[in-house]
């Protein structure tokens, strides 16, 4: 569904991505793990055209989307839940969700999708008139995910959705991710919580210094000795 070929990105003089290739299959969950600064976020930012690649190509459903304006990429069904949530703090919860559906015109379907999001996240319904800036971190993450779902994405990309959240909330988030995937939405997940991410994922990619250093099935990578020592360490399993 999403295919990246030999993608490079330069920030100033620094090469953040040095020829990344990866593939996300339809209706599957893929995860990208790796240390800070390995280039995971940059990869997602390049897919959504927030940074312009200096080389390589990105295909979505067979179409070359490299260098397309962000809004056209969003219109094709790719959404990004950015790192640090980035809800609009000065807008109400409802207005945030409304902007998620910004490019859609099917108003009757949109109102059904509000119900779907509120069903997934009942807390958001209670707080729909509240300014998003007044929500707790976990609620903001739910809003960010809900907002992304309002776009009716084919591919949802999440950048560190569990960052800075309490273990119980993290468990909820991972549960929601598999639920979303069960609805037929393809997921590309970046996680520092490699253990939980690999358990969930069909495919895993390991990034190191702007390159993919290893890839394989989620469960296989989980068993890999090298990965266990480098990324899993004594991480507590919170995905159950």
């Amino acid at each position: 569904m999403l295919e990246i070929k030999n993608l490079s990105v330069n920030y100033g003089g620094i090469r953040a991505l040095k020829g990344v290739s990866l593939c996300v299959e339809q209706k599957k969950i893929a995860t990208l793990i790796g240390a800070n600064g390995a280039g995971k976020s940059t990869t997602l930012r390049a897919i959504t055209s927030l940074v312009k690649p200096s080389g390589g190509q990105i295909f979505f459903e067979g179409e070359d989307i490299t260098n397309m304006p962000t809004r056209e990429i969003v219109a094709r069904g790719i959404v990004l839940v950015p790192e640090g949530r980035h809800v609009f703090p000065n807008l109400t919860v409802l207005e945030n969700l409304m902007l998620g559906a910004y490019l859609r015109k099917d108003s009757s379907q949109i109102s059904r999708d509000y119900d779907y999001v509120f069903e997934l996240f009942p807390k958001l319904k209670e707080r729909s008139w509240q300014m998003a800036g007044t929500l707790s971190g976990g609620e903001q993450q739910m809003l960010a995910v809900g907002r992304a779902l309002m776009a009716r994405p084919k591919l949802i990309m999440m950048d560190e959705p569990s960052l800075g959240l309490a273990p119980l909330v993290v468990r909820d988030i991972f549960h929601i991710i598999s639920q979303i995937n069960a609805q037929g939405v393809t997921v590309l997940l970046i996680e520092q919580n490699a253990n939980a991410a690999l358990k969930l994922a069909d495919t895993g990619y390991v990034m190191e210094l702007g390159r993919i250093s290893m890839s394989g099935g989620g469960r296989d990578l989980l068993q890999n000795e090298q990965i266990r020592s480098a990324y899993l360490g004594k991480a507590k399993d919170v995905s159950k």
Binding site: L50, R71, P82, P89, N90, L91, L99
Partner: peptide, 23 residues
């Protein structure tokens, strides 16, 4: 209005607004 809400969003955060598909 949708454009008005988008205006308030853009005034807070260019990048995330773009991710919503806002021009």
């Amino acid at each position: 209005t949708k454009m008005g809400v988008a205006t308030r969003a853009v005034s807070k955060d260019f990048e995330t607004s773009q991710l919503m598909g806002i021009n």
